[in-house]
Each structure stands twice: as C-alpha cells, then as structure tokens.
Design a protein around this nucleic acid. Structure first.
Lengths: 201, 201
DNA sequence: TCCTAAAGCATAGCAATGTTATGTATTGTG
DNA sequence: CACAATACATAACATTGCTATGCTTTAGGA
C-alpha cells in the first residue's frame, strides 16, 4: 500500500556515523548523508532526527561490545574468564574510543536496554560458574560481584579513554580484579594467576 | 593604556553556566548572556569562545570537587579517611550530575591540570598516612593505590550519574574499597569497619 | 593634565546547524 | 489496474557559534 523502508539504508547510516566517529570527523545532518546519494530527510525517515540517530549509534556500540565479549571463549578457569571479559571491555573501549564515549552520552538512553543487560549477564554467568567451581563463597551474589567487576572495568576505561590516565594504567586491572575476587573467597595466589592469564586487553 | 577586564564578569558567567547546567537549561551563547546586560562578545573577551567557556566550567567543577574533599577532616583512622574521600567524590558527582558529566567532556582538557592532580594528591597523602600507621604493606605504592581508589569511585559515580545503575548501587563502595585496602595489607575486619565509618556519600 | 592607543564591549551580519513544510515518485494492496 | 500511503527530494526556517566593524572607555606617558 506504500513504499517500504530499506533496512540497508538504516545500517548504512549507522555504520557511516560510526566510521566518521572513528575518523574524528564532525557528524552533522548534512555531512552524514553527503556522498550517499540520500537527502537529509533519510535521517528523519529512519531515525526521526539526529537524536534518534545518536540513540541508534549508542545501540551499535553495545552491539559491538557484545561481539567483543562473545570472542571470549569460556575456559576451564571461570576466574580467568572473568578477567578476560573485563579485558575485552577495555579492548573495545580503546579500539573505538569515540564510540565508547557516545555510549554513555545523553543519559544512557537506548532503543533496546536489553542489550546492555545482556552484556552484564555474561559477567553474571561467569561468576555463577566460578561459584559452582568452588572458587567463590556461597554468600556471594553473582549480580553484585558482576556489577562490581563492571565498575572496575568501566572506571578504568573511562579514566583512560576520556580522562587523564595513560594507557599503561591498564595494568591496574590485574591487582584490582584480584583484590575483588580474593575478597569473594578465591585463594589469593591462585586468583592472581587466573586474572593474569585472562587479562589481555 | 587600555581598559582592563573585570574578573567579576568572568566568574559571573561561569557561575551562571553552572547554575543553568544544574537547571537543565540548554547553554547557548545567547541564553548565557541573556539577562546579564552583557552582549555575546563578553564570552569572547573572557573565554575566547564557547569552547573556552566549557573549559572554564570544567575547571570550576574541579574547584568544587576540591572544596568537597577539603570538608573531609583527617581523623586518627587514615583508612576511614580514604573511604570518606571516596564518598565525598560520590557526593559531589551526585549533587551536581551535569557539572560532573561536563568535567569529563571534550577529552578532559583543562586550563589548569594541576587542579585535578591536587585532588588526586589528597588520596595519595591518605594512603601514605595509612602506611605510616602500619595499616598497609611496605610494598604498596601510594600513587598506585590512590589511583585504584579513584578508579573505583569514578566507576561508581559514572555508572550511577551517567550510566544505568540506580543510586542504591552506592552501597557497592564499601565492599569494593574494603577488598582493595585489604589486598594492600589491612586486616579484613578492621578494614571493613574503617571503610563503613568513612563511607557516608 | 591631556592625548593617544589599546582594549572592552555592542551591533549586526555570516555560514552552518537541525528541523519542518511541501511536493513528487514509488510501490504494496484492494 | 487504480489508489493511497509512504519513501524521499527540495527548499525554506529559526537558532547556533562566530567574526567584522565601530564606538566607548581608560591606563600611562608627555
């Protein structure tokens, strides 16, 4: 009964925005559609305006983060896996710093908040596996410990990517995660070895 | 040999910008000077443009943070003081979330980077006092441990103020700082009590 | 004490921004 | 096959930060 939207155009614009973000080019309505053969109205058809575009770009950021986390294949050592997930979070932030920054813009509004929850859930699952393996105490709440791991990873990423810390501050990840997981009940020496093995940001 | 700038106007504009930030009003060149009797050129005379204004606002954010940290009076328990400094950092971020957010905008460019260093130095000093009191191991590097405390405080603040965590996630501060300070050598039980006493965000 | 030059500051216009009104072309559906 | 709803282009709009220009003020040497 009418023309239908082409989903290709939607992802084309999102990818182009992400690419311009990485190239540090200013993203304006006109510069975004320039060279694509599209008019500025396309942004309104597919995103309702620039706000909607940014929201979609943030979503894309979480999608790419999820892809990074998926590259971490579970091993026999769940504490190593926890550290590896944290390292993947840092890798993602450092690989595309401007995309990472926009992910936390504008009050964290997302189209699909479940994407962020799902990323966190990978951490929760790793904590559960560590508990099942007897590495953490029974009293440990997986969601709480996962949130605390996220806080450390995000704090580091934010201070390095956005803030004043140099890249070598990445090394703080090992002692901080070791301290956290040790306080959750893991054996200190074994914990440090596991974290060091997983921490490859 | 010429007219001189009035420093009053400078701080007037900075304070007005901070107030508008808190009121969630959009800060534009014209809206900023509206009602002040000044013309838009004042922003160029005193800040060189909007970029300079934002830089000055970020600086103001660190000044207010420093004032918050100064309200933490050193006690006989340096570990409590460390937690109190972290709590003050959180209080500052939660009291003026939009100002906190702008502090980490635009690649952290500041007029006077020493202001940020000085804030960190308060943490370093507290760690040194804790070492002198025999609470932390001799091998502990004060700057490293201070940076790690900051990472935890900033990670929490960022995820609560900008990100998706609810305010009650503030409670994570106690176990996280306890884990960190315990790994630095403090006695677990004593450490937790100290942190709990200082953590009043 | 003037005179002068440099700086503060207002006015007005500029290019660029996001948005919207309007018209045209396309295509799924009855 | 006809129609109507929707994609999409064109063009105008208000608002943004910025700059060119000129007037006013004032510090500092004669």
């Amino acid at each position: 009964m009418a023309r239908t939207k082409d989903p290709t155009i939607r992802s084309l614009l999102i990818n182009r925005a992400a690419q311009m973000l990485g190239a540090r080019e200013p993203i304006t309505l006109r510069s975004l559609v320039a060279g694509t053969g599209l008019s500025t109205m396309a942004v309104y058809t597919y995103f309702g305006g620039m706000d909607g575009l940014w929201k979609a770009v943030r979503q894309e950021g979480f999608t790419r983060l999820a892809a990074r986390l998926d590259e971490v294949s579970p091993s026999a050592d769940p504490v190593r896996d926890l550290a590896a997930l944290g390292a993947a979070y840092l890798s993602n932030a450092l690989a595309e710093p401007d995309l990472y920054r926009t992910m936390f813009d504008a009050g964290f509004e997302l189209e699909d908040a479940a994407a962020a929850d799902e990323a966190l859930h990978r951490l929760v699952h790793a904590v559960e596996r560590a508990k099942a393996a007897g590495r953490f105490d029974h009293g440990v709440d997986p969601l709480e410990l996962a949130t605390q791991s996220w806080t450390i990873g995000h704090g580091l990423a934010s201070l390095i990517v956005i803030g004043p810390l140099p890249r070598q501050a990445l090394a703080h990840g090992v002692p901080m995660l070791t301290a956290l997981f040790t306080s959750a009940g893991d054996d200190p020496g074994r914990c440090r070895r596991s974290v060091e093995r997983g921490w490859r940001p």
